[in-house]
Design a protein around this nucleic acid. Structure first.
Lengths: 193, 193
DNA sequence: GATAAAAATTAAAGTAGTTTAATAAATCAC
DNA sequence: GTGATTTATTAAACTACTTTAATTTTTATC
């Protein structure tokens, strides 16, 4: 199992001795996903939180008209899951699938609870993760309330310059909350400048 | 200082002995706000996280055209602050002010850090708070991406039935991301049914 | 490497939501 | 309580964004 990245990631926020590292690692399982493979389907129970060590995932819903709405993209060094479903072990609201060959390290709810109890420092670690996630989401809400589609697109480009190349325009549009047709129009208009 | 509510609130998630309770309480300060009084102004540093024991607050921005965009309302039994500003002690992005006579219990960053170190159980407590906040925000993003203004308004009414009476329509509109004029049109249309 | 499938582009018509402005109703401040 | 200020309503013109549909380009699959 390739645990170098996740141990680095954790060590940025809390300090672990070797025994703690070993215990943590013993609770993880590797999972690889092919492009388009599901990590979670709406209605199923989210049994694990997932740390991405390679690849790219999206969390999304499908509405009554069959349109996808992408809530977030996940890339290396980030956690994904349906948190509500995970915490309550109830049916998931969201789909999560891989946009490319992806590798995650998974921890189950039982194992995470064990981890919290045996190495309480991880409470701090996940508190910090959640703080960051909360702030990022708040910024997204702010953007959606205050800015036009064009402004949001420009902001997306500057904020995630690497990400755009890994996505289709359809996916970017879905994340921005507009149609692919309109995104195409925006790009055309912007190219003229 | 009226600490009954906050101790109840904390006890829902972690168990504290009397010494821990006393220590926690010793780190808090009471602040009362009149209607329209600011708890935080954009550009200032958010020096405290604030637990609301009475009243109602809003977190919002003002755009280039002078329009307000309300990110969230805070009522009893909930925390408010500009988390990014608080954590980094950098200038705040958001305004926070009181919509009615409001009372909060404040904890400074230094005191919160002390609390984490002396009573590590609070790491868990705030982790749980952040989980809940994250899930609520994710739902809001989902709503904004997937639903029309009318659907969002109906959802707001069912989800926060008590809150609407404490707000002006202008404020509700701002929270929903629409203009007051359009909200008025929606209400008229809905009343006809 | 050919074929099928999905994504992107373009244009035209349509609609959800905005803007402006004028009036009425509610709330605030003294 | 009264005048001043803010909020809500209504209507009409406007625009950002959607929908549909046809065509081209790109990507996936065997």
């Amino acid at each position: 199992m390739d645990t170098k990245l996740i141990l680095q990631h954790v060590s940025r926020h809390i300090q672990l001795d070797n025994a703690e590292k070993d215990f943590f690692v013993s609770l993880l399982h590797t999972k690889t996903l092919k492009r388009k493979e599901f990590l979670l389907r709406q209605g199923n129970i989210c049994k694990t939180e997932n740390f991405i060590i390679k690849g790219c995932l999206r969390t999304y819903t499908i509405d009554d008209n069959g349109f996808e709405h992408i809530l977030m993209f996940g890339v290396e060094d980030w956690w994904v899951g349906d948190l509500y479903s995970f915490l309550t072990q109830s049916p998931a609201t969201y789909f999560i699938d891989a946009l490319e060959e992806t590798e995650v390290l998974q921890i189950s709810k039982d194992n995470l609870d064990k981890l919290y109890n045996r190495v309480p420092k991880f409470e701090r670690f996940f508190r910090i993760m959640l703080q960051n996630a909360f702030i990022a989401q708040q910024q997204r809400i702010h953007q959606n309330l205050s800015f036009s589609a064009e402004e949001r697109y420009l902001n997306f480009l500057t904020k995630h310059p690497h990400l755009e190349q890994r996505l289709t325009q359809k996916q970017v549009a879905s994340y921005l909350g507009i149609t692919p047709v309109f995104l195409s129009m925006l790009r055309k208009k912007m190219a003229r400048k």
